[in-house]
């Protein structure tokens, strides 16, 4: 059962189409990432779900009710804004209680529910502080508590961790996941950070130029990207193109590159993840695909190294764990080896 169902939603701003017939079902209780570059339409989609953007066409169903043209304040949603949008003139308690007091819920209940939710986000004891007296991470928790206290049907997060520094962001990712699991609420969040999408969500939708490119579980989308854009945006990829020939393609000056995925007729492009390629000495015999070249560039990033290998098919990137500390020098000849399973056919 899906809690939220977007059907054929289109939104135009003058000549530009921000959302182009987007259909997307968000399963009940899922933690759903909308991933795309800036200007892709992901934020427009989130704002349409929130009720800040009215779609020109299509339906937005929340619990089987079409809310596309219902104002935000009647939708029973919770939203965490990118800059938190805490009410600066209210205390933490009043901020969190706001959604309850506008619904005229009795004072005793308000106190109980606010206390409980502040405990959940681990902010108990800060009730009387003003937002400006809190750290970024604390403000984030207040925003989350405020959005959750009304027990909304869906929680929307707009780049929730964008304003935090790296260490705090990692902590908050864990917190966010824990809270989402405790509450069990359907959560939809917008991000341009692929790592955040992969670590937080159980579903990812990749959006580009107002269109939905691919939807699936993170592993699925990562392993089987449909398009060159999806392969490149979620993770990193090398691309090889050429005419199709017996379960593979013929690459100019390199030869046959095999794949196990079904191929179209004519030309095809294969995507290979940099970490799926092994670097071996040129004379090592190996199964699967093999291209030779020399190391043109090496980028050291601590736990791993990224090599750019100049081959007859152009430069290819290879990611290698820094497990045994042996580093290949630039200029050395190497062979790139990978299994046919790891060449994925993508649309251009």
């Amino acid at each position: 059962m899906s809690a939220v169902d977007v059907r054929n939603v289109t939104k135009r701003y003058g000549a530009t189409t921000a959302l182009d017939r987007v259909s997307l079902a968000f399963p009940n209780g899922s933690f759903f990432a909308l991933l795309g570059p800036s200007g892709s339409g992901k934020t427009t989609l989130l704002r349409a779900l929130a009720g800040f953007v009215e779609p020109d066409e299509g339906m937005i169903l929340i619990d089987d009710q079409d809310v596309a043209h219902i104002p935000s304040f009647r939708r029973n949603i919770g939203m965490v804004f990118q800059n938190y949008a805490l009410f600066p003139h209210m205390s933490v308690f009043d901020n969190v209680a706001f959604g309850l007091t506008v619904r005229r819920i009795p004072r005793i209940q308000v106190r109980q529910r606010v206390g409980k939710i502040l405990e959940l986000v681990r902010l108990d004891g800060l009730d009387h502080r003003k937002p400006r007296q809190l750290s970024g991470g604390q403000q984030q928790r207040v925003a989350l508590a405020r959005a959750l206290v009304t027990e909304p049907r869906v929680l929307l997060l707009d780049e929730p961790l964008g304003a935090l520094d790296k260490k705090l962001r990692q902590d908050m990712q864990g917190e966010l996941k824990r809270i989402q699991r405790t509450v069990g609420i359907t959560t939809i969040f917008v991000t341009h950070d692929q790592e955040e999408a992969l670590t937080l969500s159980d579903h990812i939708a990749i959006i580009d130029e107002g269109r939905l490119i691919q939807v699936g579980e993170p592993g699925e989308v990562y392993d089987r990207p449909y398009t060159r854009f999806a392969a490149n945006f979620l993770g990193d990829a090398n691309f090889l193109s050429g005419p199709v020939q017996d379960s593979g393609i013929m690459v100019d000056r390199v030869g046959h590159v095999a794949t196990t995925s079904p191929l179209p007729a004519g030309e095809a492009t294969l995507a290979v993840r940099p970490e799926r390629i092994r670097l071996v000495a040129p004379d090592t015999p190996a199964q699967g695909n093999r291209i030779e070249g020399h190391v043109a560039e090496r980028v050291f990033s601590g736990a791993s190294l990224t090599y750019t290998v100049q081959t007859d098919a152009g430069p290819l990137r290879v990611l290698r764990q820094n497990a045994d500390g042996d580093v290949i020098d630039t200029g050395e000849r190497v062979a790139l080896v990978w299994s046919a399973d790891h060449s994925v056919v993508v649309e251009d």
Binding site: F52, S72, R74, F81
Partner: peptide
């Protein structure tokens, strides 16, 4: 416009949003 949107997302009617959020912040 963020505070106004935040108030709306929390269920405040435009009037509640004006009286409880916008006017105090604009004061």
């Amino acid at each position: 416009p963020d505070l106004e949107e935040a108030a709306a997302s929390l269920g405040a009617t435009p009037f509640q949003s004006l009286v409880r959020v916008q006017l105090p912040v604009m004061a």
